[in-house]
Nucleic acid binder design. Structure first.
Length: 244
DNA sequence: ACAGCAGAGCGTCAACGAGT
DNA sequence: ACTCGTTGACGCTCTGCTGT
């Protein structure tokens, strides 16, 4: 979807602005849904906790694998070594000081046994999203996404639209020209948007869970309330029998 | 079949708090 | 001071329902 520019900020006038600011002030002091729910759940047994962010062991997407013993080592034309672990993790060692700019092809060597002939792996210099990609065996794509001060590398399926997680950071690239700086800014923005997109999804999921939790709690309390009212009526009857 | 509506879901922006 | 995660607000799209 194309980015939508919110025109509310420009068009909103005094009243609306004050209103929204007040609201914001009130709402912004609310702790996160996770906090609220976890506090709730510690008070009341039976209310499930919202699970903390899973670390690698569970959260590893299918396209990105966990760190493992290197199984394949690739040497680039610029002398860099790229080790691909069993799970797909990449390590890039940089004997010289050059980045991966200018990389044309990768020479594949097998860490287990010397290859009968070096395999040239196709390399794509620049993809549409500004990342650099090269292809390795197993239908995977190694992507250079220089989103921070340092370029980072990832393995993903060729069709994967967005990076699933940073695997490892490599040596700092050389960003000099205005064009490179602009590209860098674009990459940073893309990364920020991507992260926020995921965060928003997660936030909504937590919110739904929180609301569900509150609803079930309401149901429980309503039942309790009903029981207490009935009990009260019974006690009333016992304590003040009718004198007819 | 079509238009109109409501609700859900999504992407983005902006503001804030916490951590470094 | 800066970065990053969180979340409300807003606008947009999609989908299912309902009335004509």
């Amino acid at each position: 979807m194309v980015a939508t520019i919110a025109e509310t900020d420009e068009s909103a006038e005094s009243e609306g602005v004050i209103d929204s600011h007040k609201r914001r002030e009130i709402l912004s002091r609310r702790p996160s849904y996770r906090k609220i729910l976890n506090e709730l759940s510690s008070d009341v047994p039976g209310i499930p906790k919202i699970e903390e962010e899973k670390s690698e062991e569970e959260g590893t997407p299918p396209n990105i694998a966990a760190m493992a013993v290197p199984t394949s080592i690739y040497q680039t034309s610029t002398g860099q070594y790229i080790a691909i672990a069993q799970g797909g993790t990449i390590q890039i060692s940089n004997p010289g000081s050059d980045g991966v700019q200018g990389l044309q092809a990768l020479t594949m060597t097998d860490s287990g046994a010397p290859p009968p002939g070096a395999t040239i792996v196709q390399y794509v210099a620049q993809s549409a999203d500004g990342t650099q990609q090269f292809f390795v065996p197993g239908s995977q794509v190694v992507v250079q996404a220089a989103t921070g001060d340092m370029p980072t590398y990832q393995i993903r399926a060729p069709t994967t639209a967005l990076p699933q997680g940073v695997v490892m950071a490599a040596s700092p690239g050389s960003l000099h020209s205005p064009q490179q700086l602009a590209e860098e800014a674009t990459r940073k923005r893309e990364l920020r948007l991507m992260k926020n997109r995921e965060a928003a999804k997660e936030c909504r999921r937590r919110k739904k869970e929180y609301v569900k939790c509150l609803e079930s709690r309401v149901a429980v309390l309503e039942v309790q309330n009903k029981k207490l009212i009935e009990e009260l009526e019974t006690l009333k009857d016992i304590c003040s029998p009718k004198t007819d």
